[in-house]
């Protein structure tokens, strides 16, 4: 018989894990957008996140108000998206996926280098004005920052969902995601669609970058949270936004629970790699992920 405190503690860990997982989802969604529409696994998503956070915090440090800095950074991310389409994607169109992946790997370092050149290498503190004090909800202590982050994540998912299903450009995105050659033949302007998708991924990177930057400080190690997003993608499927959310929740929860309940038996510190164990075990059962696209086909 577990006593009441233990049960409460379990739920506290669980909820904390779920909320932390949504922070991973935010990063993973950026990957999904680009992968879905162009089949490119964009390794530079982390660098874009860093770039966005760094640009934002630098603008704020120069005295720009929050809203202006946000809009200006978004504009810069759109510019970046279009520039990447022009200089990297267009010349490599029709190349094998591995070529494009390598290109984004290179791109990640170029963006990081550019960020360093532009804004320097200092760690910046980013204060979004959201307190990180724990609040008591139904007897559980939950960080209010995590709650805000979760709300932002859900807002973003809802907005993207509406965008994909309710707008014409969303329909074009889904068409391109389904069959690129047919989309070309139908007369959709693929370069424009890709540039838009990269700009959208830039927006997601900005939102994720602000939240992660506020949590960890805006520093260059931010770019390696791509490594936290990968298990989420393996679990949820690379082409599903819903999968990114559910994958994030599962990874976040299992990471925290493992750390607390399994950690003591193996000497602790398993939080950083346990996500990969979960993802790998999962791959054995469902190679396309929980929500990855099953080929819709009738023979």
């Amino acid at each position: 018989m577990m006593d009441w405190h233990e049960v409460l503690f379990f739920f506290e860990v669980l909820v904390g894990g779920l909320l932390a997982g949504l922070m991973y989802s935010l990063v993973a969604i950026g990957f999904v957008l680009i992968y879905k529409t162009s089949g490119v696994l964009n390794f530079a998503q982390g660098a874009m996140l860093l770039f966005a956070a760094l640009t934002f915090v630098s603008l704020v440090n120069y005295g720009a108000p929050f809203l202006l800095a946000f809009v200006a950074t978004f504009a810069i991310m759109i510019g970046l998206g279009f520039a990447i389409e022009r200089t990297v994607l267009r010349p490599l169109v029709n190349r094998p996926p591995i070529t494009l992946f390598m290109a984004t790997l290179g791109l990640a370092y170029v963006i990081e280098g550019a960020a360093q050149l532009l804004w320097g290498t200092q760690v910046h503190r980013l204060d979004l004005g959201i307190s990180d004090k724990p609040m008591e909800i139904a007897g559980l202590l939950i960080s209010s920052f995590d709650l805000v982050a979760a709300a932002v994540a859900f807002g973003l998912v809802a907005a993207l969902g509406a965008f994909f299903t309710r707008t014409r450009i969303g329909l074009a995105f889904r068409a391109v995601a389904d069959d690129q050659f047919a989309a070309l033949a139908v007369g959709l302007r693929l370069p424009r669609i890709w540039a838009t998708v990269w700009a959208a991924a830039g927006f997601v990177a900005l939102v994720a970058g602000l939240l992660w930057g506020a949590r960890l400080g805006v520093q260059f190690s931010l770019s390696i949270i791509v490594l936290k997003a990968l298990p989420v993608l393996l679990l949820g499927g690379f082409d599903s936004i819903l999968g990114a959310v559910v994958g994030g929740l599962i990874i976040g929860a299992s990471e925290k629970l493992a750390e607390v309940y399994l950690g003591p038996y193996v000497g602790g510190g398993i939080e950083s790699w346990f996500a990969y164990v979960v993802a790998l075990l999962f791959l054995l059962v469902r190679p396309s992920g929980l929500f990855g696209q099953k080929i819709v086909e009738r023979v």
Binding site: A183, Q293, E297
Partner: peptide, 9 residues
């Protein structure tokens, strides 16, 4: 050729 419908649409 081969129709190329958008299958999931």
């Amino acid at each position: 050729e081969g129709r190329h419908c958008f299958r999931s649409l």
